[in-house]
């Protein structure tokens, strides 16, 4: 690996001022499970590493029925899968987080890193899209909020400017009979990258959908919000027919590529299968509440 300098600021203000000075030369480090590999391979060559793990805001897990979940961007996935409150309110997010790598990787990898690495196949991003997560981004210039589906602009690229840090995700508290689900397809049991991943978050009242959001992964250059598919279910009764029709709409926005993990046709097919499965499961979970 090339020579680097390393800083571990203890406060967000310190980190932001480091980035304001360093600009493009710096890159922030959370778990390092993507970045360190990329630096070793010479894919990314930052001169200055700013480790965010000692900053309290980035390690926060806070839930309240009014404000919902505040999830620090650097919280490792092991903490998420161990968290009973997150499991209860956002099981789909836990499903996405639990699928990333081995126990060794889980100890380090973060949801913030998963989004900022910008992979179209990131497992937590479709779950976050389904939940309508908002990304709180700070720089020395101020703070802005970006819907998670707008974070990734191309493979490996995000809306973040060189002086900005993704600090936390905000996810609304589930209202009434609401729940979510994430599933991915891989050709083996675990330790693989999604061929397709789909997340859904639904609210059900009196047998009818009142809100549905569906997120798709690994079927386009960036993770996608399948807006028309989700909207089509609102007001419809929870049935195999309505869900199947929504799955067709989800398939229509998928523009997958053919690669070693699967052909474009196969991926389109899987979008339909997984959309039906996750919406059905999320609805069952919502009704059980």
């Amino acid at each position: 690996m090339h020579a680097i300098t390393y800083d571990s600021p203890k406060s967000l203000a310190q980190a932001l001022s480091l980035l304001a000075t360093a600009g493009e030369k710096a890159r922030v480090l959370a778990g390092g499970t993507d970045l360190i590999i990329q630096m070793r391979a010479g894919v990314r060559k930052p001169e200055q590493i700013v480790d965010l793990k000692a900053i309290a805001e980035l390690q926060m897990i806070a839930f309240s029925p009014q404000d919902g979940l505040r999830l620090g961007a650097a919280v490792c996935c092991a903490r998420i899968t161990e968290d009973a409150v997150i499991k209860q309110h956002y099981p789909g997010l836990v499903e996405g987080a639990a699928l990333i790598g081995s126990d060794q990787i889980q100890s380090r990898c973060s949801v913030g890193g998963n989004v900022c690495n910008g992979s179209p196949a990131a497992d937590t991003t479709p779950a976050l899209i389904a939940l309508g997560a908002q990304c709180v981004i700070s720089s020395a210039r101020g703070t802005r909020t970006v819907p998670v589906e707008q974070m990734v602009t191309a493979p490996g690229r995000t809306v973040l400017q060189p002086d900005e840090i993704l600090v936390e995700f905000r996810i609304a508290a589930p209202q009434g009979h609401s729940s979510d689900c994430y599933q991915r397809f891989i050709p083996r049991n675990e330790m693989d990258i999604a061929v397709v991943g789909v997340g859904a978050a639904v609210t059900v009242e009196g047998g009818k959908f009142t809100a549905v959001r569906i997120g798709l992964g690994a079927v386009a250059a960036t993770p996608l919000l399948a807006k028309a598919a989700g909207d089509s279910l609102v007001g419809k009764s929870v049935s195999a027919e309505s869900i199947a029709a929504a799955a067709v709409l989800a398939q229509q926005i998928a523009t997958p590529i053919t690669d070693m993990r699967g052909t474009a046709e196969y991926r389109k097919h899987l979008v339909g299968v997984l959309t039906r499965r996750v919406v059905t499961e999320a609805a069952a979970r919502a009704k059980a509440k």
């Binding site: 390092g32 360190i36 590999i37 380090r108």
Partner: peptide, 29 residues
């Protein structure tokens, strides 16, 4: 492997199992 795939470098860091090839030396401070 040096890519976090093989686990041969596994150590425990503050109670959690990690790949030591994916931790920078200064992170152990």
């Amino acid at each position: 492997c040096l890519t976090g795939d093989c686990g041969a470098c596994s150590v425990v860091l503050d109670g959690r199992l990690v790949c030591s090839c994916l931790v920078l030396g200064p992170e152990a401070q």
